[in-house]
Simulated scan of single mutants.
Amino acid sequence: MRSGFEDWDFFLTLLSEGGTIGIVPEPLIEYRTAPASANIRSMSGRVDLYGLLIDRHRPLFEAHMRDALLALESRAILASARAEELMVRHPEEPIGDISYGDGGMASAVRIASARAAR
């Protein structure tokens, strides 16, 4: 994990070996970053690094797959609702290509209906 996410890999290794991780309520360190830091640079390869983490810790990911996928879906629903609000407030913006199977069509209908009601 020399390209980034080494801290995440470390924590997952602890968990996979039966360890636990706790959250301390007060800050114990000061964290700073800069545009040239490895933390920022690693974001360009985030999908590949995340895939590597999944491959390295597959049993841990599989054990929590349902909860993780449902949490991601919940975040996607919130992000979609925010995007819909913006689209309704800015009718000059085109709706664009509509996706299917992920709520895209329903979202486009809600936006068009709300725009027409204004």
Rank of each mutant, 00 (worst) to 15 (best):
M1F: 07
R2Q: 11
S3W: 08
F5V: 00
E6M: 08
E6G: 14
D7M: 03
W8T: 06
F10N: 07
F11A: 04
F11S: 03
L12C: 07
L15K: 04
S16V: 06
S16I: 06
S16E: 15
S16C: 07
I21N: 08
G22V: 07
I23A: 12
V24C: 12
V24P: 00
P25S: 12
E26M: 13
E26T: 11
P27M: 01
L28I: 10
E30K: 12
E30G: 09
Y31V: 11
R32Q: 03
A34F: 06
A34Q: 08
P35S: 03
P35K: 05
A36L: 09
S37M: 03
S37C: 10
S37G: 05
A38C: 06
N39K: 13
I40F: 11
I40Q: 04
R41L: 14
S44K: 14
G45I: 02
R46M: 07
R46Y: 13
R46C: 03
R46E: 08
V47G: 01
V47A: 14
D48S: 11
D48C: 02
Y50N: 12
G51Q: 08
G51T: 09
G51R: 14
L52N: 06
L52H: 07
I54W: 04
I54N: 03
D55K: 13
R56M: 07
R58W: 04
R58I: 02
E62W: 02
A63Y: 05
A63Q: 14
M65Y: 10
M65F: 08
R66E: 13
L69R: 15
L70K: 11
L72K: 11
L72W: 11
A76W: 05
A76N: 08
I77L: 07
I77D: 01
L78S: 10
L78I: 03
A79L: 13
A79D: 06
S80Y: 00
S80E: 08
A81H: 10
R82G: 03
A83R: 13
E84S: 06
E85I: 12
M87W: 02
H90I: 04
P91K: 02
E92Y: 06
E93Q: 15
E93I: 12
E93S: 08
E93P: 00
P94Q: 13
P94V: 05
P94S: 12
G96R: 07
D97I: 14
D97C: 06
I98T: 09
S99H: 09
S99W: 05
G101C: 02
G101T: 02
G101I: 01
G103E: 00
G103F: 00
G104H: 02
M105W: 12
A106Y: 02
A106F: 03
A106E: 15
A106M: 06
S107W: 00
S107G: 00
R110L: 05
S113K: 13
S113E: 11
S113P: 00
A114Q: 08
A114L: 04
R115T: 05
R115F: 02
R115P: 01
A116E: 10
A117N: 14
R118H: 15
